[in-house]
Write a protein that binds this DNA or RNA. Structure first.
Length: 333
DNA sequence: CCCTGAGA
DNA sequence: TCTCAGGGG
């Protein structure tokens, strides 16, 4: 679920204007899939399913949102996770436990006719398995968009690509990419800007966070931001009870990092976590060349294979193609 | 999440 | 043009 830095970052989010979003967006694929799978559900929590009972929520999310991105001048690149580091094992196990428990509670809530509970438990029972990953990847590639395989954490690879100048910003709901050093993080990147909350619709602006703003406003270094995260807990280490982002910030500023770790977590060596954030495994072997949209392939995949309505898919394909033609025309002049 | 259609 | 309700697969 990422790192709990929200309490010290709230003042640093700024609404992102459309102009600031044009360019190459390095999307944390796992994070995006998780969002789609947890939210795109019926009121009782059931996800969208095709005739064979396979989940299609993520395909709907990717297709419609990505199409919007393209028309807005956003060029998405999807970064998929590689092999998780050993030290993430505990987090992975914890997430699995929560999922299993939520699945049972979801069933229970459905039986009791508790829709609010059903939806909430369905959300936290969201799982990303091999089918989800391969079908998502297939659709992305049919849309002619680049896929990058991270050697390890996708967020680290995404941050690296922004640092290299190959992408303009990272898209994720989590703040971890800031620890991995991305200069720009964009959260809530949706076009409609609308989100349903408790049945009501509220508007959510995409927000942009600059690492330089974070560090200068808090008057800390990236290393110190990482230390705050280590105190509150990351995917790679459990945090210290009673220390949140605000307390962590204070402790770091008064130089208490080492002493607190020694006192509260005597058996924990923070060094591997620190160096993982500072120097994660990343790769240079990726290409961001735009492919072509395979309209027939998309129709076959979404409509024939997964039961999407042609009436909904075709207009979107037209919209994308129109934009693509515009761009090739522009490049002539 | 996103889209569509109805009604203002 | 906008908001809202309903449904998508």
């Amino acid at each position: 679920m990422g790192v709990a830095l929200r309490d010290i970052l709230t003042d640093l989010k700024r609404p992102a204007e459309a102009d600031e979003l044009k360019g190459v967006a390095a999307i944390d694929a796992f994070n995006a899939l998780y969002q789609f799978l947890s939210i795109i559900r019926q009121p009782d929590g059931t996800p969208l399913l095709d005739d064979s009972g396979r989940i299609t929520s993520h395909l709907s999310g990717i297709f419609f949102r990505t199409a919007n991105f393209l028309t807005q001048g956003i060029r998405p690149v999807f970064i998929f996770d590689g092999k998780s580091p050993e030290m993430k094992g505990r987090t992975i196990q914890e997430r699995r436990d929560v999922r299993e428990e939520s699945k049972e509670k979801w069933d229970q809530a459905k039986k009791e006719g508790d829709l609010t509970g059903a939806f909430r438990y369905a959300m936290s029972s969201t799982a990303i398995d091999a089918y989800i990953l391969s079908s998502a990847r297939q659709l992305i590639q049919l849309m002619g968009l680049p896929v990058v395989d991270a050697p390890s954490e996708g967020e680290a690879q995404a941050a690296y690509m922004v640092l290299q100048g190959d992408a303009d910003y990272v898209v994720s709901q989590d703040y971890d990419t800031l620890l991995f050093g991305t200069p720009v993080l964009v959260r809530n990147l949706t076009i409609s800007g609308k989100r349903r909350l408790h049945g009501r619709q509220i508007t959510v602006q995409p927000e942009r966070i600059l690492l330089s703003d974070v560090l200068s406003t808090l008057a800390i270094t990236r290393e110190q931001l990482i230390e705050i995260a280590i105190l509150t807990g990351t995917d790679f280490n459990p945090g210290i009870r009673g220390i949140g982002a605000k307390t962590g910030l204070k402790k770091i500023k008064s130089g208490e990092f080492d002493s607190i770790i020694r006192e509260k977590l005597p058996d924990f060596d923070p060094e591997p976590v620190r160096s993982f954030f500072l120097n994660p495994p990343v790769t240079d072997s990726y290409t961001l060349d735009p492919g072509r949209i395979d309209r027939d392939g998309i129709r076959a995949f979404l409509c024939d294979e997964h039961g999407f309505s042609l009436d909904r898919v075709d207009p979107v394909l037209d919209k994308i193609s129109k934009k693509e033609k515009q761009k090739t025309l522009e490049s002539w002049f």
